[in-house]
Design a protein around this nucleic acid. Structure first.
Lengths: 148, 148
DNA sequence: TCGCTTGCGTTCTGAAACAGAACTCTCTAC
DNA sequence: GTAGAGAGTTCTGTTTCAGAACGCAAGCGA
């Protein structure tokens, strides 16, 4: 069984995890959202072993989450940028951050701060219903799996 | 280096991943939100090997994300339920589901459906700013890491 | 009473993935 | 011509994993 073969393939959560459900991949995405773009910067900031980083970047590019683009004047230098598909992973990363800040706070306060450009406030985004606009938590929702 | 030692410990995202950043753990949480409570049901529905499932449940209990409670008349039967800390992981699981439904749709439509109890509509929750109420995406936010 | 089943794990073994250091290769700058 | 930066690849011992088998206690039916 491969690393990326997880669960039943029927579930969107399992399919998502088959692409990004790895500790280093998640940290790479964190860095991508913090505007890191180059191999060595990803390596230094995530602490991932170089062979694993190379593999994870390759996978993310293959999945269309990152784009590998030449930069500068040399033909053998590339940078990695989030695609639209990648940018759309924002809620996943933010949710991890929010939960960590709440339940596993570090000693010196949160090292990543989020500010809403429109209103200028620092905050953690929360989930709301796009239909009626109300805030929603787990208890406000009814989840139904079709296979049981 | 241990499985749960990831990154620098300085980052809330890394700390969160050190607890739940594992493919099987995430699937266990998915099931917990779908009201699965017993060992064999977790095993059957996630497909996780039994030894790994035992280990992951143990960790989640140790971290206070699940509670292990006796049920029925026998003293050696336990069920696993989300604590408040566990319930608060809802945005993480929902975000994975939402992204998967959008970018990696299955053939027969989404097998997990979310319905908002209050308004009755089926939808995927989205992120909004708790201060001003506006919807937010990655581009509406400014993320600053204090260490760079 | 004797087997059968259910539920919840643990043990065991070969296979896969990982960690960390070292190495390669190509340009550029001095 | 040599030093250094950038982007990976190779190599090797360690850890984790997958999957099947086993253990064990209680209830159940004949």
């Amino acid at each position: 069984m491969r690393w990326t073969d997880i669960g039943d393939e029927q579930c969107s959560i399992a399919r998502t995890l088959s692409v990004i459900g790895d500790r280093w991949t998640m940290l790479v995405l964190r860095e991508a959202f913090l505007r890191t773009r180059r191999f060595d910067d990803f390596q230094r900031r995530t602490g991932a072993p170089r062979p694993l980083l190379a593999d994870r970047l390759k996978r993310l590019v293959a999945e269309g989450i990152l784009e590998r683009q030449p930069y500068g004047s040399r033909s053998d230098r590339f940078e990695y940028r989030l695609t639209e598909k990648g940018v759309d992973l924002y809620p996943v990363i933010v949710s991890l951050l929010t939960w960590g800040d709440r339940w596993m706070p570090g000693e010196s306060g949160p090292p990543i701060e989020l500010q809403h450009k429109a209103c200028g406030r620092s905050m953690h985004p929360e989930l709301a219903c796009p239909e009626c606009g109300e805030w929603v938590g787990a208890r406000d929702m009814l989840a139904t799996a079709s296979d049981r």
